[in-house]
Structure formats: C-alpha cells, structure tokens
C-alpha cells in the first residue's frame, strides 16, 4: 500500500479537482488554469522527447499542436455541431460523449503524420539546420491554415463550444476537465514507458553519440521517425484539448511565440527529465497566471527570470535527472511503470 501512496494521492487529487469543478466549488477561472496546466504538461513533456532525450533542437512544436487542434475541431464540429459551412451535424450530438477522445486521438494521429515532414529531413541533417526546418514548418502550417477559407482562414474556427455543451447535455459533468486530466496522464504514461524501454533508450543513444548508435545496430532513421512522430502526435493531442477547452482556435495562437513557450518549459525543467518537464509546466502556467495583472510587463519579467535562472542553474530545475533520483525516498512511495 505504501508503495502506491503517491499514485493514490494523485488519483484522489484529480478526483477532488473534478468533484470541485462539478459542484462549483472552484470558479471557471481556476478550472481553466488547471486545464491549461495539463495541456502545458503534455506540450513540454512531448517536446522533451525530441529536444531532451534525442538532443535535437525542434523550435516549431506549436505547428503540430495547431494541426491537432484544427483536425480534431473540424471532426467534432462536422459530426456534432451546426456550422455555416459544414451544415447540420452528421451524427446526433449526444454521441459526442463517446466520440470525443477518438476525435482528439485522430487529431493526434494526423499531426503525427505531419511530424514526418520534420523527421525525414532529420535523417540527413541535425542541429541548427533542423532547427530552421522546424521553424519553417511552423510558419508553413500557420500560413497554410490561414489560406484555408473553408475552416475560417485567419479569422479562426469555432463551434467547439457547441460540442462541449452537447456533451454536458447528456451528463452534466466537467467533461473537458476529465479529458484533459486523462490526456495528461496518458501522455506521461506513454512517454515514461517509451523512454524507459530499451527500444526508447535508443534515442538517448542517438543523442549521446549518433555514429556509435548506428554502428551498434540502432536503426537511427527509424528511431528518429518514431521519436518525431510520437512527439508531434502528443502535441496534436494537446492541441485538440486546447481547442475544445477554449472553444475557438485561431492560427496565430500557434505561432512561434507558442513554440517558444514550449521550449522554455523544456529547458526550464531540464533536458531529458520527464518529471522536470511536468514540474516546469506547472510552475510556468502558475507564473503566467500570477503575473497576468502586469499585462505586457509579464513578458519582460518571465524571460528575465529565465535568463537569471540560466545564469545560476544552466541545466534547468532538475538537470537530466528524474525527481526520484533527486529525492530517492520518493521512490518508496511511488510505483510508476
């Protein structure tokens, strides 16, 4: 029992959050902060696969989030909501409850496929050249969507609120909160299992010495493909959740600034540390909200804090260690495989 203390505490905590949201004990603002926290955790830990574990420098993570957000939104809106262009819902809106996670997964799958756009060039080139390719892909995705009038172009795409309301009409519980928590747990679980398997450790081998990895029988091209697709697919899931939490997406919400936020969270937490990514995503979200009253000055103070942090602790909060390595006692209370 003691072994699972933290797991149980986490589960109870999530349950309490959902219950509190259900009975209106926390207001909508706090709820949305918690949901953004979850989305940020997905973003930072998924980018950590590529930038931390594999040691590449991908700066266009928001592009995949964008693809996921648009694909899952279009799927749910076409199927379950009244829309000017797509017309009446194809399926009865009640079914949204069942279909929601599937729609978000479809968004993730499509953005995993888009991830190939970045993965294939990474076979031949790495480092700064790859960085530029990811930036270019970020611009291309945004620009491509801005030119797709059918999904709203640069004005953005909406209608996801209707789908969320349709779910609440069936059973009135905070659906998006539940999906976000499940999505976050799913992401961490998958990444944890991937990077702790010998298969997944192949990407760490690529990070530390690519030539040795290739000669020691690691299929580096395939591993890169898997890592990029996993990372972008999870980012797509984050995007899908984001779109349905906000109820509205605009291509410019996924610009380079958003990618920069993802980068900041990864490097703040420490490259190659999953718990570091989670921790930094939580801290970063809280910091953003705490400094909200400062308006634009916020975006001076946050970078300043980071620059100072880099000066004093250049390896990020946890370096490349996990929380369990820093506090070995924690391991006694937690089984996480």
């Amino acid at each position: 029992m003691q072994k699972y203390a933290i797991n149980i505490a986490f589960f109870v905590g999530c349950l309490l959050i959902v219950l509190a949201a259900q009975f209106g004990m926390v207001d909508l603002y706090v709820q949305s902060v918690i949901m953004f926290m979850g989305i940020n955790i997905i973003l930072s830990s998924s980018l950590n696969i590529v930038n931390g574990y594999m040691g590449e420098f991908s700066c266009g993570h928001a592009a995949f989030m964008c693809v996921g957000a648009y694909v899952s939104s279009v799927v749910t809106v076409v199927l379950f909501a009244q829309n000017k262009i797509f017309g009446a819902p194809i399926l009865p809106p009640d079914m949204a409850v069942l279909f929601m996670p599937l729609a978000i997964l479809i968004g993730g799958l499509v953005s995993a496929v888009v991830g190939i756009l970045v993965a294939v060039p990474s076979f031949k080139t790495r480092g700064d050249y790859l960085a530029i390719i990811t930036i270019a892909v970020n611009y291309m995705v945004i620009s491509g969507i801005e030119n797709l009038e059918i999904i709203g172009g640069s004005r953005g795409f909406m209608g996801m609120k209707q789908v969320v309301y349709a779910m609440s009409d069936v059973v009135n519980i905070p659906w998006m909160m539940i999906w976000t928590i499940l999505g976050t747990v799913f992401t961490i679980w998958i990444i944890r299992r991937f990077v702790s398997s010998t298969y997944g450790k192949g990407i760490s081998a690529i990070c530390q010495d690519e030539i040795a990895a290739e000669i020691m029988s690691v299929n580096t091209n395939k591993m890169k493909l898997v890592a990029f697709m996993l990372s972008s697919g999870l980012a797509g899931i984050a995007g899908g959740l984001f779109a349905h939490v906000i109820g509205y997406v605009n291509p410019q919400s996924f610009n380079i600034l958003k990618s920069t936020e993802c980068l900041v969270m990864v490097y703040l937490g420490g490259m190659g540390s999953l718990s570091g990514s989670v921790l930094s995503a939580v801290l970063f979200t809280l910091l953003l909200e705490a400094l909200r009253p400062l308006q634009i000055v916020k975006w001076v103070i946050i970078p300043l804090i980071l620059v100072l942090l880099m000066q004093f602790r250049p390896e990020g909060i946890l370096g490349n260690k996990e929380l369990g390595d820093v506090f070995p006692r924690l391991k006694r209370y937690c089984r996480f495989k």
Partner: peptide, 18 residues
C-alpha cells in the same frame, strides 16, 4: 550546453521586444 545559450538569446529577444 549550447542550447541553453540559444534559449537565453531567445529570451533576450523577448525582453527587448516587450
């Protein structure tokens, strides 16, 4: 690590802008 310097540069850019 080289990438941390790059992130610092990115942050300096944000500071200048904002």
């Amino acid at each position: 690590h080289r990438l941390y310097v790059v992130i610092t540069a990115l942050m300096c850019g944000l500071i200048l802008e904002n």
